[in-house]
Amino acid sequence: MQALLSVAPGGPETLELTTMSDPEPKKNELLIRVRAAGVNFPDTLIIQDLYQMKPPRPFAPGGEVSGEVIATGSGVEGFQVGDRVLALTGHGGFSTHLCINASSAIKFPETMPFKDAACFIFTYGTSYHALKDRAALKPGETLLVLGAAGGVGSAAIELGKTMGARVIAAVSSEDKAKFCREIGADETIIYPRKLDRDAQKALSAEIKRLSGGEGVDVIYDAVGGEYAEPALRSMAWNGRYLVVGFPAGIPNIPLNLPLLKGCQIVGVFWGAAVFRDPQGHAENIGELFQMYLNEKIKPRISASYPLDKATEALDLLTKRSVLGKVVVTTDD
């Protein structure tokens, strides 16, 4: 097998493509032939030791995979050789072979390509948990998505429209705005890379204008930093502000704003929610598969790289220049 290994803390340039012995599945494990791995922002953090999870080195990044079961360990029930599965792995996905616990594997529809399957569960799972479970988004409400052209952001646009919301997509460039309109956003806002106080006030005013003056009901913030406060200032009464991620930095929020707005600031920690409520997670995944089969949602894969060029995929995420999703493939 081959794996792209992190051998020292650092950026994508520190990863090394290595040939290793094929692993063997232990009790309750599946050995899968990885066909594709989704690339997500945590992959750029985990190799720098900046993520919550710090696996011992050497390890391969890649927390989201799809592939075929090629062997099963003792005690495995419900899976057999040849099953097509996807899984969240935390790390290890940038490899040709991987052992995973059978409890983390999910069979996916036969009509779903491996690339789609590898780019499905992380973004749609996060965004559906956020909009359904944490925000209780209702038809007719207005949803603002910050960082809307990325993986979770584009998933939030599609899901918001499927759930009957009016969606405003906030992005940093015109090409990203065009992409968001193509996947269903009703309105777009282009914000600057850096915000001073005047720019923050202008952003807040533009959000309010596009929401009809009343403010937005739900904010999906996958950006953080200087964009959080002006977005919060644009919130409607009884609004829900979803804290999803901080690629622009962890913001400082004036706590008088939630009081004045009568709104909630709601954390979205999907990984913990999966662990704490596996039944709810299973229900959500079933609903998401049905949306996919009904052509309501589909991973927007803008770039695909073979395993030996996966560092280029990570570079794209580091530069925040990705539209939708990027995938790494491992086919012979």
Rank of each mutant, 00 (worst) to 15 (best):
G73E: 06
S6W: 01
G90P: 03
L45A: 10
N40K: 05
F41S: 08
R84T: 07
I46L: 09
A8V: 14
T96I: 05
G93V: 06
P42S: 08
S21A: 15
L50G: 05
G63W: 00
L4S: 02
S66T: 06
E64F: 07
G78K: 07
I47W: 02
E13T: 09
D83F: 07
A3K: 04
G67P: 03
S74Q: 13
F41P: 09
E64I: 10
V85L: 07
A60T: 05
G78W: 01
P12F: 10
M20E: 13
E24R: 11
V69A: 02
E29H: 01
G67C: 11
R57K: 15
V81H: 00
T72K: 13
L31I: 06
L5S: 05
E24Y: 01
D22G: 12
T14H: 10
I46A: 09
L45E: 03
L88S: 04
G62W: 00
S95I: 04
G63R: 01
V85G: 03
G38N: 06
L5N: 02
V69G: 00
F41Y: 15
P58Q: 10
V76P: 01
D49K: 11
G92F: 03
E77N: 14
F59D: 03
G62I: 09
L88Q: 07
G93C: 08
Y51F: 15
G62T: 02
G75L: 05
E64C: 13
G38F: 01
E77T: 15
Q48A: 13
F59S: 10
G10I: 11
G78A: 10
P23Y: 00
S21Y: 00
K54G: 07
D49Q: 13
H97P: 06
L15Q: 08
T19L: 09
G10L: 12
D49H: 07
